[in-house]
Design a protein around this nucleic acid. Structure first.
Lengths: 114, 114
DNA sequence: CGGTATCCCCTATGATACTG
DNA sequence: CAGTATCATAGGGGATACCG
């Protein structure tokens, strides 16, 4: 029998949706990116903006997004330490899609009420 | 690139993004909805359109989306059986957001090449 | 044709506690 | 302030076989 080498979920190369969803992967990722809509934020600010996301997950997503080139991380040599996260141009390209998601969500919520 | 598994979205009632992402939940869900963009499709057509999604997952997502009111399932009394899936008005509301995702993805792919 | 049934892995997320 | 470490878990997803 063949050892099951579990195939990882691969994005189809050249598939637009995979390309974008790869960046938005993770349950809270869009929320985090959205929180950077108005400019750079510090870690504690993000925690306050997204109190429903645990610190661990925030860190994890931020690291991931940093590596994918979606956002940048700047450590300032202060005491206590200050760290700022900001969207890169690539990250900013994702905003229209996220905005669309928020807008649709809003309309759906309105519909629910009526 | 490895796509992330998406965790289940249920938290935060009343939050637009959760509302929308709840419907788009599931790694392959947007692809499926997108496949219904041009009208009703049969199960086997969806399988052909999305050969990278296993039958199990297609079924699972379709059932889920049906229950959430995103799409409808129509069984025709033929032999062999014929089943048609189609977007509901609610499902059609999601298309702009998905379109946005596709568009961003396309632009990102173009960028990669240059 | 349009699915189920099984089995099993994997990863994202949570909760809690701790640190330079 | 800005994280790590550790332990635990649900459920998504893959592969394969089988069914009315």
């Amino acid at each position: 029998m063949v050892l099951k080498q579990r195939a990882k979920v691969q994005a189809l190369p050249g598939c637009p949706m995979s390309k974008c969803m790869g960046l938005l992967g993770g349950l809270w990722t869009p929320e985090l990116i959205w929180a950077l809509n108005d400019g750079a934020r510090r870690f504690s600010e993000l925690r306050r903006d997204c109190p429903f996301i645990s610190a661990k997950v925030i860190t994890s997503r931020l690291r991931d997004l940093e590596q994918r080139g979606v956002l940048s991380r700047r450590v300032m040599p202060t005491s206590p330490p200050t760290v700022e996260y900001d969207l890169t141009p690539l990250g900013r390209e994702l905003l229209p899609a996220i905005k669309s998601i928020v807008e649709v969500g809003s309309r759906l919520l309105l519909r629910d009420k009526h």
